[in-house]
C-alpha cells in the first residue's frame, strides 16, 4: 500500500470553523457521500465515517472554513 492509500484509509478528521463558516451550503450540496448537513446556519459533520477524502468540500469552501485531514 502506498503512503497515500494508507492515509486515505485512516478515518477522516473533518473540521468546520464556525466563526468563519457563512452557511452557504456549498460543501453540503456537493459532498458525494452526504457526510455534511446544515444545522443552525453552519455546516456540521454528521457522518465522518462515510468520507472518502475527495477534498471537494475543502477546495470549494469560499470561506476557508472546512478542512479534511
Amino acid at each position: 500500500m502506498t503512503e497515500e492509500q494508507s492515509a486515505r484509509k485512516e478515518p477522516a478528521v473533518i473540521t468546520v470553523k464556525p466563526e468563519w463558516c457563512k452557511g452557504c451550503g456549498i460543501c453540503v450540496a456537493f459532498c458525494p457521500k452526504d457526510v455534511l448537513e446544515m444545522e443552525g446556519g453552519t455546516a456540521k459533520v454528521l457522518r465522518p465515517d462515510d468520507c472518502i477524502k475527495c477534498m471537494l468540500c475543502e477546495l470549494r469552501c469560499p470561506d476557508f472554513a472546512i478542512t479534511v485531514e
Partner: peptide, 25 residues
C-alpha cells in the same frame, strides 16, 4: 488538508465577501 493560513492575512478574516461568493474559492 492544505495550510492556507501561511499565505493569508488572518487578522482580516472572516473575509468581507457574502456567503457563497465565489471570490474566496
Amino acid at each position: 488538508m492544505f495550510n492556507y493560513l501561511e499565505y493569508i492575512r488572518e487578522s482580516n478574516f472572516p473575509h468581507i465577501w457574502c456567503a457563497g461568493c465565489g471570490d474566496g474559492i
